[in-house]
Write a protein that binds this DNA or RNA. Structure first.
Lengths: 230, 230
DNA sequence: TGTACATCAGTGAACGCGCGTTCACTGATGTAC
DNA sequence: TGTACATCAGTGAACGCGCGTTCACTGATGTAC
C-alpha cells in the first residue's frame, strides 16, 4: 500500500526540497518581491511549468518559505534557550539568537517581520510556526515567576480588561502586568533588530552587539527578570 | 532674469506635484514594489516617456517620495510636540503622532521604516528629512535634563566608548546613559508601531491605542522622563 | 514473472501582460534684439 | 511692438525584457492481476 517509500515519492521529496533551497537562495540574494518561479526553474535546469507539479502557484511557494523561516528562527531560539540557565540568562540568549538569525538571514527576516509582500497575505497555516519565539518568551517568564524576582509595574485602569484577556489567551498563570510587559518587550525586540538590519543605525550605533545586549537586558528587567536568579 | 515666475515654471511645479501625488496614491494602494512610472503616467493622461522630463528615473521618483514621507511624518511629530507641555507629555504626544501617522500612511511608513525596496538604496539627500523625529526626541530629553527628574540607568563598561561617541555626535550636553537609552527607545518605538501595522498584534493585542500609550509611557520612563514635571 | 493499465514528472510552446527607458519628432512658450 | 531664434513639455513608436500560468504531449515509474 505504502507508496511513501517508492522511488517516485523519494524523488518528489528531494525535488521539493531543491526548489525551496533554490528559492531561498534567490530570496537571500534579491528579496521576496523579486522571487520568480521562472528563475528558480531556470537555475534547477527545469522548465518553469514543471514547478507547478510541486507548488500550485507562486504564493504557495512563498507560504512554504515563510513557514520554513519561522521554523528556522524558532529552532535557533529554542537551541539558545536550552543552552542557557536561569530566566534572565535564557531571555538574553533568546534575544541574541533572534538578532543573530536576523543578521544571518536578512531577507528571510524581512519576509516574516518586515513590510508585507505586495499582493500576498499569509494564510492561517503559518500561525503555529510564527508563534514559536513568542511561546518561548512566555515559557521563560513563567519559569521565572515560579521563582523569586518578578517585580511587575502597575497597569493603568483602561488597559486592564485587554491585559486580562491577553493573559487568559497566552499565559493564564502569569499576572496581567507581566503579560502586557512581555508583549511590549517582544515588539520592542523586533524594533531593535529591525533598525539594525534595515540600516537605521548606520552612522548612529557602531558597537551594535554590545548595544543590543544592553537593550535586551533592559527588556528583561521590564518583564521583571533579574540576573543570577535560578 | 527670473523665469521662476513664468507660466512654464509654474506649470513645471504643478505637474511635478501632480506626479508625486499620483505616485503617492499608487504607493498607498499597492506598495512601493508595485509603483510603476507607466501607471502613474497613464493615470495622469500622459505618455510614460513624458515623466522623464520631471524625474530622470523611477528611483529618483522613489527618492522624492521618501523625502516627502519623512517630512510629512516629521511635521506631524513636530506639531504634536508643540501642542504638548512638559517633557513627559511631549514624549507621549510625539510617540502617538508617529503611530497615528503610520496607521494613516501604512505604505509610506513601510517605505521609510520597513524592509528596503529591492534594487533601491536611499541616497544621502534623504538623511536630513530622516533625522527630524530623532532630533525631536533628543530635544525633548535635553529640555527635561535641564529640569529635574532624569534618573538614568547605569551603562556596562564595554558599551561606554560607543555611548560616549554617540553622545558627542547627537547630544553632547546629555549624559551617555541617557543618549543610549534614547536610541534604544527610538528603535523600540518603531518595533511597537511596526508590529501593530504589519499585523503581528492580530489576535494578540486588541485595545491597541491604550496598549501603545502604556508602552510609550514605559519608554519615556526608560529615558528618565516622569509625568508632570515642567 | 509477465502483461495491461494508471499515474504523474517533466516538456515545449504559447497567451497575455506590464515594465523602464530611449529617441526622433512637433508645437507651444519664452527670450533677445 | 514685432520678429527670429532657443528652449523644452509632451508625443508615439519602439526595444528588450521578464513574469505567472495553461495546455496538450511524452515517456518513465508504479500497481493490479
Amino acid at each position: 500500500m505504502s507508496t511513501a517509500h517508492g522511488a517516485r515519492a523519494r524523488a518528489r521529496i528531494e525535488v521539493t526540497a531543491a526548489i525551496k533551497d533554490e528559492a531561498r537562495r534567490q530570496l537571500a540574494a534579491e528579496g521576496a518581491a523579486r522571487l520568480s518561479l521562472r528563475a528558480v526553474a531556470r537555475e534547477l535546469g527545469m522548465v518553469s511549468s514543471a514547478l507547478y507539479r510541486y507548488f500550485p502557484s507562486r504564493d504557495d511557494l512563498l507560504t512554504a518559505l515563510i513557514i520554513d523561516a519561522y521554523d528556522s528562527l524558532g529552532e535557533s531560539a529554542e537551541a539558545a534557550d536550552e543552552a542557557a540557565a536561569g530566566p534572565f540568562e535564557r531571555w538574553i540568549a533568546v534575544c541574541r539568537a533572534v538578532r543573530r538569525w536576523a543578521l544571518d538571514h536578512p531577507h528571510e527576516y524581512a519576509l516574516i517581520y518586515g513590510s508585507p509582500v505586495p499582493g500576498y497575505t499569509a494564510p492561517e497555516v503559518t500561525v503555529p510556526a510564527a508563534a514559536r519565539v513568542g511561546l518561548l518568551f512566555i515559557a521563560i517568564t513563567r519559569d521565572a515567576h515560579h521563582g523569586p524576582g518578578l517585580a511587575p509595574t502597575s497597569l493603568p485602569a483602561d488597559l486592564r480588561p485587554d491585559a486580562e484577556r491577553m493573559t487568559a489567551d497566552l499565559a493564564p498563570d502569569l499576572p496581567p502586568e507581566v503579560v502586557t510587559a512581555l508583549v511590549a518587550a517582544w515588539a520592542q525586540l523586533y524594533g531593535l533588530v529591525g533598525f539594525e538590519l534595515f540600516g537605521q543605525f548606520n552612522r548612529v550605533v557602531e558597537n551594535r552587539e554590545t548595544f543590543f545586549r544592553h537593550a535586551a537586558e533592559q527588556l528583561a528587567r521590564g518583564v521583571g527578570l533579574v540576573p543570577g536568579s535560578v
